[in-house]
Design a protein around this nucleic acid. Structure first.
Lengths: 221, 221, 221, 221
DNA sequence: TATGAATGAGTTTTCATTCAT
DNA sequence: TATGAATGAAAACTCATTCAT
């Protein structure tokens, strides 16, 4: 019962299409910055590089973004929104596992077609550079997943434990899958990818023999 | 059957120079750099900051390390070695799950007493800054886990799928647990921590009903 | 039969960028650096000093030259080319002595109007800082003189001995004349200057009584 | 009528032989600094390098010299004194040419056995670093030669022109010979060396046909 | 006298940002 | 809106010199 993966739209969806060309400049800028930030890292990328790759003048960056950091945050949020939208596109009434799997697969499609967006959101060595608004967006993504998992817990599909924990666990495993998809290590139709999606679920699913290998003892002071 | 968690030794054990103050200076330096790198990030940390926090002069950094980058790498390797040693301290004949659990718990102890070492190795937004030697060390850690998992697979305890994949999955979930331990969100003796350790195992364990929610279809071109 | 000394053109002729101020900035920079390098020495000159004297910001230096060393080399080559051009402007068919004298005098004119260029090329405590391209230029100058002297030797005007040696000797004496001209100790129209030019020729000319005062004996071990 | 070249004594002759070891340290220091300054240049040589090569501790330099610059000047003067002494060792009554030739040959012997001393005094890219005392020593050397040449002029052996000029000319050519001797390009018993000595004399000797190739005209303003 | 770790002022260089055009 | 030369604050790093031992 797959959602036929639909190729995700252009990224990032630029807010208000004003002049044809103005928008195009901003778009070129965003694309160039996204490429460079995700391939080289934020600090390793200079504004002259961005401008050169975008084919515009250095000063022009500041007609569209107030700073390099704001440019990063704007791109981050646009990318994160892509993934949040995927969540919202799933049926709220579907069973937990199915819904998570649908999300995972549509994220995978995004990562396949827009690897840099995936890298920015999930691989991100950029956490310390995010501004409050971006952190909010980041939290929104996490809490959407958390809500789904909380629902699954309520209906006994997810193991006991905090929904926050399971959301974090699930996201970590899915992040791995997305990174491997983004860097073309795992083609989307190969088993490794599906294995990871399954693993993410099994990590948090109920009804498994979970007898701990050993009881936990607190470490001494 | 826990290892009684022993408070891990001083970090990082500096190699040979055992003179009065020399060691102390290097130690102060390492501690300051570790603190700042893990809390602010590498690029956000300046050499004046490191010196100030260590209570030494800026130039003194360069009597002990040839560059800021070398300082980072030296610290990274010392930290990674801590975790690698934990692996080697476990019995190679123990069942896979038990062995992984023992490792996870001793890593948790390290993260509890030495949170920054854990952050540097597992949270790390610093991957692009590691030099070849450090990457080797990183790989050593990964491959030790991989070997354990490969053995578990051979004896049917780990699910079908590449050992590399399962090692990566397991490490991601354990990394989450270590981060939460390091930032004191999850006290080591609370269930959240154990839940995550269990989840890491369940993600890769055999003998579970893994019927996929839906067959995978490749994304359209 | 003198060449009427023509005041040499602006120095250094910067290659292509012909925009309003860009050229002027580069020119100011080159002039300031040339002044300071030749009066204080390269190492004694700091980039803040250069910028201050050029009336520009320190960072601006690096929009025009990739390093302080490249700045030096660029200036050096521009200066050396001035002197090389003078050689090429002389008639290849003129007798050796006449040709060398013409060169010496046109060099003197350069040294008079552009003393720093002469200092950079002939006084130069900067040899160890020259890059390969600059050394090539330096060699070009030397070998042009050497060719003239070799021709003079072939026609019996120059004494027996290697042309390389005589070129080096001639250049040393002319260098003295140029330094004295550059620092206005010897006005170009005074006899001291002409005496030095004559001396340079007599040092290498044929047909003189050269009976050595004493035979050479090798030094003891 | 050559002076049989006597191998010059140890350099530099250290002033007051106090303790055996104290002196030896100073000597090691001077030797190391001389080597490094002449091979790498003053600025390219660091005090740690000097100390390392001398086999002493960094701080020890400052027990013997108040600064790196003073060390240079001390060495320079010791080296220059070597050459000045050679002048004083010649007979004041010998004919000008003979005396100059004797000096040149004994300098050549010094350059052969103590190339670095010759480099420091004659090649010297270090002029801007000399202190007043060193400049005095430098002038002493020049004026000793000048006196000899003035005497030669008085007796008609040297051409018309200022003795200062002829001293400078002679020294330039001899400097070339010394550099080539120091770097072993010209073995002392080969003709190139003698040719240069002859050239130095011919450059300034009287009784030659010196008809200028062309009369000098002053450059235009 | 000798040591050598520590110092800190000073160096070159980078680069996000500004602003006159 | 776009340009790109210029800016200057701040970065990493150097090294002659000091000083407690």
């Amino acid at each position: 019962m797959t959602h036929p993966p639909t190729p995700p739209g252009r990224f990032p969806t630029p807010p208000p299409p004003r002049k044809r060309d103005a928008q195009s400049t901003r778009e070129k800028l965003v694309r160039a910055a996204l490429d460079l930030f995700t391939s080289q890292g934020y600090h390793e990328t200079t504004t002259p590089q961005i401008a050169r790759r975008a084919g515009i003048a250095e000063g022009t960056i500041y007609r569209h973004f107030s700073s390099k950091e704001q440019l990063l945050n704007e791109i981050y949020r646009a990318a994160a929104r892509l993934f949040i939208q995927s969540i919202k596109d799933t049926s709220p009434t579907a069973p937990c596992r199915e819904r998570l799997e649908t999300i995972a697969k549509s994220w995978r499609t995004i990562a396949h077609y827009n690897p840099n967006a995936a890298r920015l959101v999930f691989q991100s060595q950029i956490k310390p550079l995010l501004d409050p608004r971006s952190r909010e967006t980041e939290n929104e993504l996490k809490s959407e997943i958390e809500k789904i998992i909380a629902a699954g817990k309520a209906s006994g599909q997810v193991r006991v434990g905090s929904a926050e924990t399971w959301a974090a666990v699930w996201l970590r495993v899915i992040a791995l899958m997305l990174e491997r998809t983004a860097d073309k290590t795992w083609p989307p139709d190969q088993p490794a990818s599906q294995n990871a999606i399954d693993a993410a679920w099994l990590a948090i699913a109920a009804n498994q023999t979970t007898a701990s290998a050993a009881p936990t003892t607190p470490p001494p002071p």
